[in-house]
């Protein structure tokens, strides 16, 4: 498959999913439902482009769900306290950036594997969200939230405009900014990136930080749509965002992907949930479908990337650890299986 064709793959999947649902789900192929999906998908799309940035470095962020809960609570508390929408956005994005920075510091500078670092954050942020909110939803948000959650502009939900702007910005960032190009370089071949003078640790740090900040922004939209800050928000968000990014053509091994593709992937995931719902499938079986979708998405990609090469579980330093059992063979094959 040529590169150009491969990049168009997400659109193809989107079209197939749409055509598959149109005849079986009553009310699916209507303009109203399209707007509905757009509003539902908006926050997921924002989280997905953040997740995509981390995936491109060859990492994972499984803390996005908990961080979304923490930031939605932080933003809502700030809005209730000050009555100002801007302060809520600021609080949520800042809180998300701090969580992301902690992840990025642990992965980039301390050499902790992405799974462990973001797992720790997953537990920490969930606890913090419940603690801050007193385990109850934060209510009494200013009216601006309602207009963000359910308002429309030119027939398109306001939240979708925000998501569109974020995706466009991130795509531009990826194409033009040296930092973002460094992200792809680090994910593609870390040694080559370092030898070419790419600041590997800093790049990882920035990727996780940006992901956290974007989750904070998405959390404001979640708060707007629920008209409250829910400390239990975001279960399964890591699964959805990773599935969306993979469907959108972002390589799990790192080093490849487009932001607009990831966003299209988010639309596919959201459309799937919406379509299955309208088709009358039990919500529990939708979880089953979500899992199978993720596997299928990976299966589609597999032809292009051998997955055992995924670097998500190893930072370079950890991989070079002395391994007594494998020593004789290692001397023959070299320490690094990819060398």
């Amino acid at each position: 498959m040529t590169r150009r064709l491969r990049e168009l793959m997400p659109l193809f999947i989107l079209a197939v999913a749409y055509l598959a649902f149109a005849p079986v789900s009553p009310g699916f192929a209507t303009a109203a439902n399209a707007a509905n999906i757009a509003g539902q998908v908006a926050p997921l799309a924002i989280v997905t482009v953040g997740q995509a940035l981390v995936l491109m470095t060859g990492g994972f962020d499984i803390s996005v769900g908990s961080v979304a809960a923490l930031t939605t609570v932080a933003g809502s508390l700030s809005a209730v306290a000050t009555g100002s929408f801007a302060s809520a956005v600021l609080a949520a994005v800042l809180a998300g950036a701090v969580c992301g920075a902690a992840n990025g510091f642990a992965v980039g500078y301390l050499g902790v594997q992405p799974v462990v670092a973001t797992l720790g954050m997953l537990m920490f942020a969930r606890g913090a969200a419940l603690l801050l909110s007193g385990s109850a939803p934060v209510v009494g948000l200013p009216d601006t939230f309602v207009s963000l959650g359910y308002g429309e502009w030119l027939g398109v939900p306001a939240a979708a405009w925000v998501a569109l702007a974020v995706v466009a910005l991130m795509e531009a960032f990826l194409v033009w900014s040296p930092t973002a190009r460094a992200v792809l370089a680090v994910g593609g071949n870390e040694t080559a990136a370092r030898l070419n003078g790419v600041p590997v640790r800093w790049t990882r740090f920035v990727a996780y930080l940006v992901c956290g900040a974007l989750v904070g922004l998405a959390a404001i939209i979640y708060a707007a749509r629920a008209n409250s800050g829910q400390p239990t928000l975001g279960e399964g968000l890591e699964l959805d965002s990773i599935a969306a990014a993979v469907i959108g053509g972002v390589s799990l091994a790192g080093g490849r992907g487009r932001m607009w593709g990831a966003a299209v992937g988010a639309v596919v995931v959201g459309m799937l949930a919406n379509g299955l719902n309208l088709a009358g499938l039990s919500p529990f079986l939708q979880d089953v479908a979500a899992g199978i979708t993720l596997l299928l998405a990976v299966w589609l990609q597999r032809a292009r990337t051998p997955f055992w090469r995924s670097r998500a579980f190893s930072t370079r330093d950890a991989r070079r650890e002395v391994r007594p059992l494998a020593l004789p063979a290692e001397r023959l094959a070299g320490n690094d299986e990819r060398s």
């Binding site: 994972f60 499984i62 799974v115 399964g236 890591e238 699964l239 990773i242 993979v246 799990l252 529990f284 079986l285 939708q286 979880d287 089953v288 479908a289 979500a290 899992g291 199978i292 993720l294 596997l295 990976v298 299966w299 597999r302 051998p306 997955f307 055992w308 995924s310 998500a312 579980f313």
Partner: peptide
């Protein structure tokens, strides 16, 4: 099938719960 274990088991997490 050489699916990364992270993905295979996260998917399992979803459908086992379902």
């Amino acid at each position: 099938f050489q699916v990364s274990s992270f993905i295979a088991t996260v998917a399992m997490m979803s459908y086992a719960y379902g």
